[in-house]
Design a protein around this nucleic acid. Sequence first.
DNA 1: TCAATAACTGTCCTTATTGGACCATTTATG
DNA 2: CATAAATGGTCCAATAAGGACAGTTATTGA
Lengths: 216, 216
Amino acid sequence: MAEMAVAEGRAPRKQQQRSVQTQNKLLDAALEAFSENGFKGTSTRDIADRAGVHHPLITYHFKNKEELWRAAANRVFSKFSASLLEARIAADGQKPRERMASMMRAYVQYAAKNPALHKLMLQESSRESSRLEWLVTTHLQPLSEAVVKELKLLQESGIAPAGDPALLFNLLRATSGGILALATEIKATSGIDFDKPENVDALAEMIVGVFLPGSD
Amino acid sequence: MAEMAVAEGRAPRKQQQRSVQTQNKLLDAALEAFSENGFKGTSTRDIADRAGVHHPLITYHFKNKEELWRAAANRVFSKFSASLLEARIAADGQKPRERMASMMRAYVQYAAKNPALHKLMLQESSRESSRLEWLVTTHLQPLSEAVVKELKLLQESGIAPAGDPALLFNLLRATSGGILALATEIKATSGIDFDKPENVDALAEMIVGVFLPGSD
DNA sequence: TCAATAACTGTCCTTATTGGACCATTTATG
DNA sequence: CATAAATGGTCCAATAAGGACAGTTATTGA
């Protein structure tokens, strides 16, 4: 983040709005670029171009490429967690099956609007790296633990399919995100356009139906 | 492929075995590299290094980077189709559900041994390109059509879940391949190691159970 | 209002890497 | 053993890489 020359006792001047805007533009552009071409395959100039910003501003705002990656990943994952949590809270009074279904729909809807989320994981999953390690401990493990716990309960009630709950969780995750990461190709192969909300809804319902066959 | 200076009437000399070997080494290395870093993010030198071969040999054997990509993709997809077909034939006398289950298991097993198959699709799916177009028309559409046809029948028998069969096919595909494309990350997050055959088997059974709930 | 500082622009540098060309050399073939 | 296939070694021109830095503009807060 932008270093400021802090004078001794003086209160530092506050961050300007235009700064926040360019940072956000850079973060969006970075996420898009990194998810398309991976960390190594993405140049800071490409990111700056997508953001419509001069490339030295990356150094200014984020120190270097690695920090920019981390900030971009943090942003999309935080929003994602918030989105899931919101769905979870909204369905708090509901029965267990409906609670989980609500989260699954939120997952699909978020992945449809932000396919970069899953693409980023796939890019980093191609090889062990410090970035993957960070992603796992910071974002994925907490998410996994929370969802697996709920899945277990659903399995005991016969609502979710039997088997290793961790495996089931990952299956679910790969399904929701994976199909949307393939959106461009699927449109070409099968003519299904996930830009159309009705197709995303159909996908969500199919996933719910397949993974939560039991009723409560 | 290696051009040869064909003298008028003379029969051209046959290809040497060592040539085939280096071509295969290059194809394997290319597939690995392209699936990890995408087309743009992969250098021909990287491929040559992985193959343990001098990089000008790429030009010699494959003309250029694009042709090498195509040859590598062709190779893995052809093997894949053959593998599916084999499973299909082996289960030819079985009931419809068991036929499909057999293909699904083959899909998972192949994807586990060749995660590059799915990673390559994901890489190319990040943006429209001539390569994606080629992949779709040459390999994906034929596969899709064949499987969708069978899925429809299973849906009519109540064995497969209802809904758009094309959507179901893609769900299935994204599930099988997608989870194995995430193998490195899943091992770190959940401790599930898909290098162990028993975990791959468990995955295959879970997929069959989830997507073919009905019995015949 | 006005100095201080945050934010941004323009430019340059050095280094590495890119895909591919080219000729000499080695190896297999018929 | 003559010939062609296959490979090795080297070079190149282009350019793309991450980052440094001094100067300029905009905003802030007293």
